[in-house]
Design a protein around this nucleic acid. Structure first.
Lengths: 145, 145
DNA sequence: TTTTATCAATTGAGTAGTAAAGTGATAGTA
DNA sequence: TACTATCACTTTACTACTCAATTGATAAAA
């Protein structure tokens, strides 16, 4: 039918996993009234706050337009605040956002950990982590070119 | 700061890789006048044609509403055709779609293969493929529950 | 001083994903 | 015959992503 290479098969597997895990994650996060994308942004903010929008966009590998709109929504819902300082808006979590991210993070962690533990041994996980790190760093480098 | 498990770190790595590889793929596919999502659908159609919409949605793990709109666009651009047979629409590629998918597939294959080859040895790729397959099959099973 | 460049953020148009409600034809049942 | 269920698909309303054009303020140059 159609010839493939090991590389393209890996690519396909990862794509499938990601798609499916996103469905699972979204379903899981629904109980917290938050989407996967929103969780990612809140998580980044909690790590780097106070952070300017453009920097946050780069950290989350999202376009500036995208971050602008997401933050507008997150601000409306009271999870983050934007402090305008000259032309820069400094983003940080509100206490509501702080509480939300803490709560979700605990559950999310348990959820992801259990899925991995259910199908891979600790050694396998170590190997997978090592290989995925190599691969991810490489695409990161490719993107910067 | 924030505690993590091996499982959650793997999850994060894969998410990052996927996000970045999507950016790369989209950029790459732009020269063929097609998006990543469209390529995925055309690829599935080429494998399973003639296929009904709902089945295609399941194969691509996309909602029925989503597939409906995507197919409308792909039909407008002349890549696929929908033949109504009672209440079912049978999807297949036009010759234009057939040519496009062939052309893109060759390049896409070379592109993905080279990225993997640039950072992992053949043995590492074999291991990664094995581990990712385990993980993906597991989430697939989880989704069906 | 006025003009121009630059920079951070926003906005507009387009694609893509979801859930949920709506369509329209057929099949089964009262 | 009429009523209801079901099924495949479409539509609507929403979030989220892209790129490209725009805004608005300040810094640098004429």
């Amino acid at each position: 039918m159609r010839k493939s290479t090991l590389g393209s098969l890996i690519w396909l597997r990862i794509a499938r996993f990601t798609h499916q895990s996103n469905l699972l994650s979204n379903e899981f996060l629904k109980q917290f009234g938050i989407t996967t994308a929103q969780f990612d942004i809140l998580n980044q903010v909690s790590i780097y706050q106070p952070v300017m929008q453009s920097e946050l966009a780069a950290k989350a590998t999202v376009s500036e337009g995208g971050i602008s709109r997401m933050l507008t929504r997150l601000e409306q819902e009271g999870y983050i605040q934007r402090k305008q300082d000259w032309k820069t808006k400094w983003i940080s979590l509100t206490s509501k956002g702080e509480r939300k991210i803490q709560e979700v993070f605990e559950h999310q962690l348990a959820f992801q950990t259990s899925i991995l533990n259910e199908c891979l041994t600790e050694n396998e996980q170590k190997t997978l982590y090592k290989l995925m790190t190599k691969l991810q760093k490489h695409t990161e480098y490719k993107l910067e070119e």
